[in-house]
Protein backbone atom coordinates (compact mmCIF):
# COMPACT_ATOMS: atom_id res chain seq x y z
CA UNK A 1 0.00 0.00 0.00
CA UNK A 2 2.80 2.44 0.92
CA UNK A 3 4.57 1.61 -2.33
CA UNK A 4 1.37 2.14 -4.28
CA UNK A 5 0.81 5.51 -2.65
CA UNK A 6 4.40 6.58 -3.27
CA UNK A 7 4.13 5.64 -6.95
CA UNK A 8 0.93 7.60 -7.29
CA UNK A 9 2.46 10.56 -5.44
CA UNK A 10 5.47 10.71 -7.76
CA UNK A 11 3.10 10.47 -10.72
CA UNK A 12 1.16 13.38 -9.28
CA UNK A 13 4.31 15.52 -8.99
CA UNK A 14 5.28 14.78 -12.60
CA UNK A 15 1.76 15.71 -13.71
CA UNK A 16 1.99 19.01 -11.85
CA UNK A 17 5.31 19.82 -13.54
CA UNK A 18 3.82 19.32 -17.00
CA UNK A 19 0.69 21.21 -16.00
CA UNK A 20 2.78 24.20 -14.88
CA UNK A 21 4.61 24.28 -18.23
CA UNK A 22 1.29 24.04 -20.06
CA UNK A 23 -0.18 26.83 -17.94
CA UNK A 24 2.83 29.01 -18.67
CA UNK A 25 2.41 28.42 -22.42
CA UNK A 26 -1.27 29.39 -22.12
CA UNK A 27 -0.21 32.54 -20.27
CA UNK A 28 2.09 33.40 -23.18
CA UNK A 29 -0.45 32.65 -25.90
CA UNK A 30 -2.61 35.79 -26.13
CA UNK A 31 -1.24 38.37 -28.60
CA UNK A 32 0.31 41.41 -26.98
CA UNK A 33 1.29 41.62 -23.34
CA UNK A 34 0.40 43.57 -20.28
CA UNK A 35 2.72 46.45 -21.22
CA UNK A 36 0.42 47.38 -24.15
CA UNK A 37 -2.63 47.08 -21.95
CA UNK A 38 -0.99 49.10 -19.16
CA UNK A 39 -0.14 51.94 -21.47
CA UNK A 40 -3.62 51.93 -22.98
CA UNK A 41 -5.21 52.03 -19.59
CA UNK A 42 -2.98 54.66 -18.00
CA UNK A 43 -2.47 57.11 -20.81
CA UNK A 44 -5.42 56.69 -23.17
CA UNK A 45 -7.28 59.96 -23.42
CA UNK A 46 -4.53 61.90 -21.61
CA UNK A 47 -3.14 63.06 -24.94
CA UNK A 48 0.38 61.89 -24.04
CA UNK A 49 2.51 60.46 -26.78
CA UNK A 50 3.97 57.06 -25.95
CA UNK A 51 7.10 56.05 -27.78
CA UNK A 52 8.50 52.62 -28.46
CA UNK A 53 11.24 53.23 -25.86
CA UNK A 54 8.66 54.11 -23.19
CA UNK A 55 7.00 50.78 -23.88
CA UNK A 56 10.36 49.05 -23.61
CA UNK A 57 10.96 50.68 -20.23
CA UNK A 58 7.59 49.60 -18.93
CA UNK A 59 8.29 46.08 -20.19
CA UNK A 60 11.61 46.09 -18.37
CA UNK A 61 9.98 47.37 -15.19
CA UNK A 62 7.42 44.57 -15.27
CA UNK A 63 10.07 41.99 -16.12
CA UNK A 64 8.40 41.10 -19.41
CA UNK A 65 11.52 41.53 -21.55
CA UNK A 66 13.38 38.46 -20.32
CA UNK A 67 13.30 35.19 -22.31
CA UNK A 68 10.42 32.79 -21.58
CA UNK A 69 12.44 30.12 -19.73
CA UNK A 70 13.85 32.70 -17.32
CA UNK A 71 10.40 34.05 -16.57
CA UNK A 72 9.06 30.49 -16.14
CA UNK A 73 11.83 29.54 -13.71
CA UNK A 74 11.38 32.74 -11.73
CA UNK A 75 7.65 32.20 -11.59
CA UNK A 76 7.91 28.56 -10.42
CA UNK A 77 10.71 29.43 -7.98
CA UNK A 78 8.49 32.06 -6.38
CA UNK A 79 5.57 29.67 -6.07
CA UNK A 80 7.54 26.77 -4.65
CA UNK A 81 9.72 28.73 -2.21
CA UNK A 82 7.54 31.65 -1.15
CA UNK A 83 4.09 30.56 -2.32
CA UNK A 84 4.15 33.77 -4.37
CA UNK A 85 2.16 33.61 -7.57
CA UNK A 86 3.50 36.88 -8.94
CA UNK A 87 1.97 40.32 -9.34
CA UNK A 88 -1.49 41.22 -10.54
CA UNK A 89 -1.07 43.99 -13.07
CA UNK A 90 -4.71 44.92 -13.24
CA UNK A 91 -5.22 45.25 -9.50
CA UNK A 92 -1.71 46.52 -8.87
CA UNK A 93 -1.14 44.15 -6.00
CA UNK A 94 0.00 40.50 -5.76
CA UNK A 95 -1.97 37.68 -7.38
CA UNK A 96 -2.19 36.02 -3.97
CA UNK A 97 -4.24 38.92 -2.60
CA UNK A 98 -6.54 39.00 -5.62
CA UNK A 99 -7.23 35.28 -5.45
CA UNK A 100 -7.24 35.35 -1.65
CA UNK A 101 -10.67 34.56 -0.36
CA UNK A 102 -12.01 33.38 -3.69
CA UNK A 103 -10.06 30.12 -3.53
CA UNK A 104 -11.72 29.25 -0.21
CA UNK A 105 -15.15 30.12 -1.47
CA UNK A 106 -14.57 28.08 -4.62
CA UNK A 107 -13.53 25.14 -2.49
CA UNK A 108 -16.57 25.66 -0.27
CA UNK A 109 -18.82 25.42 -3.33
CA UNK A 110 -16.86 22.43 -4.67
CA UNK A 111 -17.01 20.42 -1.45
CA UNK A 112 -20.61 21.26 -0.65
CA UNK A 113 -21.51 20.13 -4.18
CA UNK A 114 -19.57 16.87 -3.79
CA UNK A 115 -21.05 16.15 -0.37
CA UNK A 116 -24.54 16.88 -1.62
CA UNK A 117 -24.01 14.66 -4.69
CA UNK A 118 -22.84 11.64 -2.70
CA UNK A 119 -25.19 11.92 0.26
CA UNK A 120 -28.12 11.94 -2.15
CA UNK A 121 -27.00 9.59 -4.91
CA UNK A 122 -25.54 6.74 -2.83
CA UNK A 123 -28.50 5.89 -0.57
CA UNK A 124 -31.09 6.65 -3.23
CA UNK A 125 -29.23 4.68 -5.90
CA UNK A 126 -29.12 1.68 -3.57
CA UNK A 127 -32.78 2.07 -2.70
CA UNK A 128 -33.82 2.39 -6.36
CA UNK A 129 -31.95 -0.82 -7.21
CA UNK A 130 -33.49 -2.80 -4.36
CA UNK A 131 -36.99 -1.56 -5.20
CA UNK A 132 -36.47 -1.66 -8.94
CA UNK A 133 -39.46 -1.19 -11.24
CA UNK A 134 -41.35 0.40 -8.35
CA UNK A 135 -43.02 3.83 -8.59
CA UNK A 136 -40.24 5.30 -6.44
CA UNK A 137 -37.61 3.91 -8.83
CA UNK A 138 -39.34 5.32 -11.92
CA UNK A 139 -40.01 8.75 -10.45
CA UNK A 140 -36.40 9.02 -9.29
CA UNK A 141 -35.24 8.21 -12.79
CA UNK A 142 -37.50 10.87 -14.30
CA UNK A 143 -36.40 13.41 -11.69
CA UNK A 144 -32.72 12.74 -12.29
CA UNK A 145 -33.03 12.91 -16.08
CA UNK A 146 -34.77 16.24 -15.63
CA UNK A 147 -31.59 17.47 -13.97
CA UNK A 148 -29.48 16.13 -16.82
CA UNK A 149 -31.68 17.64 -19.51
CA UNK A 150 -32.15 21.14 -18.08
CA UNK A 151 -29.35 23.60 -18.90
CA UNK A 152 -27.52 24.63 -15.75
CA UNK A 153 -27.96 28.38 -16.08
CA UNK A 154 -31.72 27.94 -16.47
CA UNK A 155 -31.80 25.73 -13.41
CA UNK A 156 -29.77 28.37 -11.55
CA UNK A 157 -32.26 31.08 -12.49
CA UNK A 158 -35.23 28.95 -11.43
CA UNK A 159 -33.56 28.08 -8.12
CA UNK A 160 -32.65 31.71 -7.57
CA UNK A 161 -36.25 32.75 -8.16
CA UNK A 162 -37.49 30.14 -5.71
CA UNK A 163 -34.93 30.96 -3.04
CA UNK A 164 -35.62 34.70 -3.21
CA UNK A 165 -39.41 34.50 -3.41
CA UNK A 166 -40.08 31.49 -1.23
CA UNK A 167 -37.24 31.56 1.27
CA UNK A 168 -36.52 35.30 1.21
CA UNK A 169 -32.78 34.88 0.71
CA UNK A 170 -30.79 37.78 -0.69
CA UNK A 171 -30.10 37.70 -4.42
CA UNK A 172 -26.75 36.31 -5.48
CA UNK A 173 -23.36 36.44 -3.81
CA UNK A 174 -22.14 34.19 -1.04
CA UNK A 175 -23.03 36.43 1.89
CA UNK A 176 -25.94 38.61 2.93
CA UNK A 177 -25.05 42.33 2.92
CA UNK A 178 -24.85 42.48 6.70
CA UNK A 179 -22.21 39.75 6.79
CA UNK A 180 -20.23 40.90 3.77
CA UNK A 181 -17.63 42.81 5.79
CA UNK A 182 -18.12 41.08 9.13
CA UNK A 183 -15.39 38.87 10.58
CA UNK A 184 -15.92 35.09 10.74
CA UNK A 185 -18.52 33.95 13.24
CA UNK A 186 -20.99 31.11 13.51
CA UNK A 187 -23.77 33.36 12.20
CA UNK A 188 -21.66 34.22 9.16
CA UNK A 189 -20.97 30.52 8.58
CA UNK A 190 -24.70 29.75 8.66
CA UNK A 191 -25.27 32.63 6.27
CA UNK A 192 -22.63 31.16 3.93
CA UNK A 193 -24.30 27.74 4.05
CA UNK A 194 -27.65 29.31 3.13
CA UNK A 195 -26.07 30.92 0.11
CA UNK A 196 -24.24 27.74 -0.86
CA UNK A 197 -27.47 25.76 -1.19
CA UNK A 198 -28.50 27.18 -4.57
CA UNK A 199 -25.16 26.75 -6.39
CA UNK A 200 -24.60 23.37 -4.75
CA UNK A 201 -28.03 22.07 -5.75
CA UNK A 202 -27.65 23.37 -9.31
CA UNK A 203 -24.17 21.88 -9.71
CA UNK A 204 -25.00 18.65 -7.89
CA UNK A 205 -28.18 17.85 -9.78
CA UNK A 206 -26.66 16.53 -12.99
CA UNK A 207 -23.76 14.84 -11.16
CA UNK A 208 -26.26 13.18 -8.82
CA UNK A 209 -28.34 12.02 -11.78
CA UNK A 210 -25.31 10.34 -13.36
CA UNK A 211 -24.02 8.78 -10.14
CA UNK A 212 -27.49 7.57 -9.24
CA UNK A 213 -27.82 5.67 -12.50
CA UNK A 214 -24.29 4.24 -12.14
CA UNK A 215 -24.93 3.05 -8.60
CA UNK A 216 -28.32 1.62 -9.52
CA UNK A 217 -26.84 -0.30 -12.47
CA UNK A 218 -23.88 -1.64 -10.45
CA UNK A 219 -26.22 -2.65 -7.65
CA UNK A 220 -28.47 -4.56 -10.05
CA UNK A 221 -25.41 -6.39 -11.39
CA UNK A 222 -24.11 -7.20 -7.94
CA UNK A 223 -27.46 -8.22 -6.45
CA UNK A 224 -27.63 -11.17 -8.84
CA UNK A 225 -24.09 -12.38 -8.13
CA UNK A 226 -23.69 -15.89 -6.81
CA UNK A 227 -21.58 -14.54 -3.92
CA UNK A 228 -24.67 -12.72 -2.64
CA UNK A 229 -26.80 -15.87 -2.86
CA UNK A 230 -23.97 -17.75 -1.14
CA UNK A 231 -23.96 -15.25 1.73
CA UNK A 232 -27.76 -15.46 1.93
CA UNK A 233 -27.45 -19.26 2.03
CA UNK A 234 -25.24 -19.03 5.10
CA UNK A 235 -27.97 -17.19 6.98
CA UNK A 236 -26.90 -13.54 6.75
CA UNK A 237 -29.78 -11.11 7.20
CA UNK A 238 -31.06 -9.31 4.12
CA UNK A 239 -30.00 -5.79 5.16
CA UNK A 240 -26.53 -6.75 6.29
CA UNK A 241 -26.13 -8.70 3.06
CA UNK A 242 -27.18 -5.74 0.96
CA UNK A 243 -24.81 -3.29 2.62
CA UNK A 244 -21.86 -5.64 2.88
CA UNK A 245 -21.82 -7.02 -0.65
CA UNK A 246 -23.62 -5.14 -3.47
CA UNK A 247 -23.64 -1.68 -1.84
CA UNK A 248 -19.97 -1.88 -1.01
CA UNK A 249 -19.12 -2.76 -4.62
CA UNK A 250 -21.43 -0.07 -5.96
CA UNK A 251 -19.19 2.47 -4.21
CA UNK A 252 -16.21 1.54 -6.39
CA UNK A 253 -17.30 3.39 -9.54
CA UNK A 254 -18.30 6.35 -7.37
CA UNK A 255 -14.87 6.53 -5.78
CA UNK A 256 -13.27 6.13 -9.18
CA UNK A 257 -15.20 8.98 -10.75
CA UNK A 258 -14.66 11.71 -8.14
CA UNK A 259 -12.07 13.22 -10.49
CA UNK A 260 -14.59 13.45 -13.36
CA UNK A 261 -17.14 15.06 -11.10
CA UNK A 262 -14.65 17.72 -10.02
CA UNK A 263 -13.70 18.46 -13.61
CA UNK A 264 -17.34 18.90 -14.51
CA UNK A 265 -18.02 21.12 -11.53
CA UNK A 266 -15.11 23.38 -12.42
CA UNK A 267 -16.19 23.75 -16.01
CA UNK A 268 -19.81 24.45 -15.12
CA UNK A 269 -19.05 26.73 -12.19
CA UNK A 270 -18.14 29.97 -14.09
CA UNK A 271 -21.53 30.08 -15.84
CA UNK A 272 -23.39 29.45 -12.60
CA UNK A 273 -21.19 32.02 -10.87
CA UNK A 274 -22.06 34.57 -13.53
CA UNK A 275 -25.78 33.97 -13.10
CA UNK A 276 -25.68 33.91 -9.32
CA UNK A 277 -23.03 36.59 -8.89
CA UNK A 278 -20.68 34.36 -6.92
CA UNK A 279 -17.19 35.69 -6.20
CA UNK A 280 -15.36 32.52 -7.19
CA UNK A 281 -12.29 31.71 -9.25
CA UNK A 282 -13.75 30.77 -12.65
CA UNK A 283 -15.33 34.15 -13.13
CA UNK A 284 -12.07 35.88 -12.09
CA UNK A 285 -10.19 33.65 -14.52
CA UNK A 286 -12.26 34.86 -17.46
CA UNK A 287 -11.86 38.49 -16.35
CA UNK A 288 -8.09 38.17 -15.96
CA UNK A 289 -7.79 36.72 -19.48
CA UNK A 290 -9.74 39.68 -20.85
CA UNK A 291 -7.44 42.06 -18.94
CA UNK A 292 -4.32 40.08 -19.95
CA UNK A 293 -3.58 39.85 -16.21
CA UNK A 294 -1.58 36.71 -16.86
CA UNK A 295 -0.12 35.96 -13.43
CA UNK A 296 -3.59 35.91 -11.91
CA UNK A 297 -4.86 33.71 -14.75
CA UNK A 298 -1.84 31.41 -14.33
CA UNK A 299 -2.31 31.20 -10.59
CA UNK A 300 -5.99 30.28 -10.96
CA UNK A 301 -5.30 27.65 -13.62
CA UNK A 302 -2.55 26.17 -11.50
CA UNK A 303 -4.69 26.07 -8.36
CA UNK A 304 -7.67 24.52 -10.11
CA UNK A 305 -5.58 21.85 -11.82
CA UNK A 306 -3.76 21.22 -8.56
CA UNK A 307 -7.12 20.62 -6.85
CA UNK A 308 -8.18 18.28 -9.65
CA UNK A 309 -4.90 16.34 -9.53
CA UNK A 310 -4.91 16.06 -5.73
CA UNK A 311 -8.53 14.93 -5.60
CA UNK A 312 -7.84 12.41 -8.36
CA UNK A 313 -5.01 11.11 -6.19
CA UNK A 314 -7.42 10.86 -3.28
CA UNK A 315 -9.89 9.05 -5.54
CA UNK A 316 -7.19 6.53 -6.56
CA UNK A 317 -6.27 5.86 -2.94
CA UNK A 318 -9.93 5.49 -1.98
CA UNK A 319 -10.51 3.01 -4.79
CA UNK A 320 -7.44 1.01 -3.76
CA UNK A 321 -8.72 0.85 -0.19
CA UNK A 322 -12.22 -0.17 -1.33
CA UNK A 323 -11.14 -2.80 -3.83
CA UNK A 324 -8.35 -5.16 -2.74
CA UNK A 325 -7.90 -6.44 -6.29
CA UNK A 326 -6.42 -3.10 -7.39
CA UNK A 327 -3.49 -2.58 -5.05
CA UNK A 328 -2.35 -6.15 -5.40
CA UNK A 329 -2.17 -5.99 -9.15
CA UNK A 330 -0.91 -2.42 -9.37
CA UNK A 331 1.60 -2.29 -6.51
Amino acid sequence: MAKFMLQRFIGMMVTMLFVSILVFIIMELPPGDYADRYVFRKYAGSGMQITESDLRNIRHELGLDKPAYVRYSKWIYGIVTRFDFGPSFAFETSANVVIGQRIWLTMAILFSTLILTYTISIPIGIYAAVRRHSIVDYSLTVFSYLGLALPNFLLALIMLYISVNVFGASVGGLFSPEFEEASWSFAKFVDLLKHLIVPAVVLAWSATALQLQTIRATMLDELNKLSVTAARARGVSEWKLLLKYPARLALNPVAGSIGFDINRIFSELPIIALVLGLPELGELLIRSFIDLDMFVAGAILLMLTFLVVVLNFVSDILLAILDPRIKLQGG
Binding site: K225, L226, S227, V228, Y245, R248, L249, L322, D323, R325
Partner: peptide, 8 residues
Protein backbone atom coordinates in the same frame (compact mmCIF):
# COMPACT_ATOMS: atom_id res chain seq x y z
CA UNK B 1 -14.78 -18.47 -7.67
CA UNK B 2 -18.04 -16.59 -7.81
CA UNK B 3 -19.40 -18.00 -4.55
CA UNK B 4 -16.94 -15.78 -2.69
CA UNK B 5 -17.07 -12.03 -2.83
CA UNK B 6 -13.74 -10.76 -4.20
CA UNK B 7 -13.50 -7.73 -1.89
CA UNK B 8 -13.44 -9.59 1.43
Amino acid sequence: MSSFSPVY
